[in-house]
C-alpha cells in the first residue's frame, strides 16, 4: 500500500472524515449492542465451532487436534445418515403440505364475510401459540394406535388406522399432520398477501374472459408469489431444524429407552444427543457445520428458483 491513487486517496480520506463526524460516532453507538452481540455470539462461535470440529474435545480432557477425522466419521455414521434422511423426508412432506393447505384456507377466508374472517383466523391461530413440547405430548395421545382419538375417529368411517407412534413408516407422516395443525401462521401471511392484490386486476381479467382457474393461476399466484417464496424458505429452514415436538414425543431420559426405532431421530436431536448427552463436542461441532452447509445450499437453490417464479411489483 505504498502508492495510493489520487482518487482512491480522496475516497479513503472522505471515509475517515466520515468516521470523525459526531453523527457517525453516535450511529455506531446505537449499533454497538448488535455489533458486540454479533462478534461474541455469532462470529466468534462460528469460528470456534469450526476449530472444535477439528478436535476430539469432550469438555473433560484438553482437546487434541484430529484433522478431518470427525468429518470422515460423519460420512460413515449410520445415525447421521438416518437422521439427515428423516429430516429431509419430513421437510419435503411438511413444506408443500403447509403451503398448499394454508393457501387453500386463506383463499376460503378471503371469500367469506369480514366478520367471520376474524373468528376463523383466531381459531386457526390457536395451535400456533401452543408450545411445541405440548404438541409433542398431545401427539402421543391423539395418535396412539390402539386408543388414540385419530384412530377412533378413523374407525367410525371404517378405516383401520396405522400405529402412528410406533410404526417407523407412519411416525413422520403423523408428525407432519401434527405440524399442519399449526398451519395458521402461514394462513395469516397468505391472507394478508391476498388482501393486497388489486381488485381491478381481477376485473380486467374477467372482462378478458378469464376463467376462475385462469384468474387464480395468472393473477393471484404471481401477485402473492413474494409471500409464497418467503414461507417456502422460512418453513424449510424450520423443518430442517425440527426438534421440540419430536424430542418431546420420542426422546428424553426415560422415553428413549422404550422407543428403539430411529424413525423420529431428527438431525438436531442427534446433534443435541452427541453434544450434550455424550459430550462429543468436537464431533457435534462437525455435525453443526454440516447442517449449516446443508441449509445454505438449500436456501441458495431456493433463491435461484425464486428469480424465475417470484414477481416483484415495480421491477
Amino acid at each position: 500500500m505504498s502508492t495510493v491513487l489520487p482518487e482512491q486517496g480522496s475516497r479513503i480520506r472522505s471515509w475517515v472524515t466520515g468516521f470523525r463526524r459526531r453523527e457517525t460516532l453516535a450511529a455506531y453507538g446505537f449499533l454497538s449492542p448488535w455489533i458486540i452481540g454479533f462478534l461474541v455470539f455469532m462470529a466468534a462461535p462460528m469460528i470456534a465451532s469450526l476449530v472444535l470440529s477439528l478436535t476430539d474435545y469432550d469438555a473433560l480432557r484438553p482437546a487434541n487436534f484430529v484433522g478431518m477425522s470427525n468429518y470422515q466419521q460423519l460420512l460413515l455414521d449410520p445415525k447421521v445418515r438416518v437422521s439427515l434422511a428423516n429430516t429431509l423426508i419430513y421437510t419435503v412432506m411438511m413444506v408443500p403440505g403447509t403451503m398448499v393447505i394454508a393457501l387453500a384456507l386463506a383463499l376460503l377466508l378471503a371469500k367469506v364475510g369480514r366478520r367471520s374472517v376474524g373468528f376463523f383466523r383466531t381459531v386457526f391461530y390457536l395451535p400456533v401459540v401452543t408450545p411445541k413440547v405440548a404438541v409433542g405430548v398431545l401427539f402421543l395421545l391423539l395418535f396412539n394406535g390402539q386408543v388414540g382419538l385419530i384412530n377412533s375417529a378413523l374407525s367410525l368411517v371404517g378405516i383401520h388406522g396405522p400405529q402412528w407412534s410406533t410404526d417407523p413408516l407412519w411416525v413422520k407422516p403423523g408428525l407432519v399432520l401434527m405440524h399442519l395443525w399449526a398451519v395458521g401462521g402461514t394462513v395469516v401471511i397468505y391472507l394478508a398477501a391476498l388482501k393486497n392484490v388489486p381488485r381491478d386486476l381481477y376485473e380486467a381479467a374477467t372482462i378478458d374472459g378469464a376463467s376462475a382457474w385462469q384468474r387464480f393461476r395468472r393473477v393471484t399466484l404471481p401477485m402473492i408469489s413474494g409471500a409464497l417464496f418467503f414461507t417456502f424458505i422460512v418453513e424449510t429452514i424450520a423443518g430442517l431444524q425440527t426438534f421440540d415436538e419430536a424430542y418431546a414425543a420420542f426422546y428424553g431420559s426415560a422415553a428413549s429407552a422404550t422407543y428403539s426405532s430411529d424413525a423420529a431421530l431428527f438431525y438436531l436431536i442427534y446433534l443435541f444427543q452427541q453434544a450434550f448427552q455424550f459430550l462429543h463436542l468436537g464431533y457435534a461441532s462437525a455435525m453443526a457445520w454440516l447442517l449449516f452447509i446443508v441449509i445454505i445450499v438449500i436456501t441458495a437453490i431456493q433463491v435461484r428458483l425464486s428469480r424465475r417464479f417470484v414477481y416483484y411489483e415495480g421491477r
Binding site: M42, P45, L268, A275, L281, A288, T299
Partner: peptide, 13 residues
C-alpha cells in the same frame, strides 16, 4: 439465515 444450531456448542462453552 444463521441456524441457531450452528453456534449452540460454542455459546454453551
Amino acid at each position: 439465515m444463521l441456524p441457531g444450531a450452528a453456534t449452540m456448542i460454542p455459546v454453551y462453552l
